[in-house]
Design a protein around this nucleic acid. Structure first.
Lengths: 109, 109
DNA sequence: AGCAATAGTTACTAAATAGATACTATATTA
DNA sequence: TAATATAGTATCTATTTAGTAACTATTGCT
């Protein structure tokens, strides 16, 4: 778990530590529309390997961004959901969404 | 230059392509407070190597996020400034800043 | 003449990250 | 009996990314 002492002084860097990579942002994007199963995430995150997806999900769980719920079924069922802290990343996500849209428009004529 | 055809369908992914890495975000953070020289950026971006900083600056210039101005002096002077498109990343930056601040507060008691 | 300063480039190496493939567990179904 | 489905883990390899160190150019300064 990230403890408070090793968070960098600049809050932007804190954010980067916790979701400063492509896959984490896309996981948040997918979970913002609701709880998802492992397999659904994998399908949606085009091209991510199982190992890498698992690693990111574990890290995000550790940092309190998502919760993991295992159902005692066969075949197994595992659901991932954003915590409140994770939900609050919506603002960051939306800013990125808007910027990306605007950038695309600029490139079109 | 990124042409329109190879931008991903999801705008969030577009944003990630253009500044989805730590150094680029921090370069934007620094340039949001005004034009900076190469050496100033290097000092501020703790630990970045000259090579990597140059690479990122070149990529961001190519993508229209910053402009590079060389002064015909010796020793050389090169200034980097956000373009309008680059400036518009302030929203994304600010969202990350706010989220990082809130996250830190949650971790303190 | 030789050094300092700035913003690089180049070549080589190291570290981090990701991918590929094979393997596991187990109740249900054919 | 054997295949199927899901969510992994383990191991090995490949790719990407970054770091290190040496080198360049040019003018002013000592």
């Amino acid at each position: 778990m990230l403890s408070n002492e090793n968070l960098p002084p600049c809050p932007v860097e804190t954010t980067l530590m916790l979701m400063g990579d492509k896959w984490k942002v896309l996981i948040v994007r997918d979970l913002l529309t609701g709880t998802k199963r492992f397999g659904e995430l994998k399908k949606s995150l085009n091209g991510v390997s199982q190992k890498v997806l698992t690693q990111h999900l574990r890290a995000m769980e550790k940092n309190g961004l998502i919760t993991r719920k295992v159902y005692a079924q066969v075949p197994p069922k595992v659901e991932y959901t954003l915590t409140d802290v994770g939900q609050s990343l919506k603002q960051v996500h939306d800013a990125m969404l808007e910027w990306g849209k605007a950038y695309k428009l600029k490139k079109e004529y």
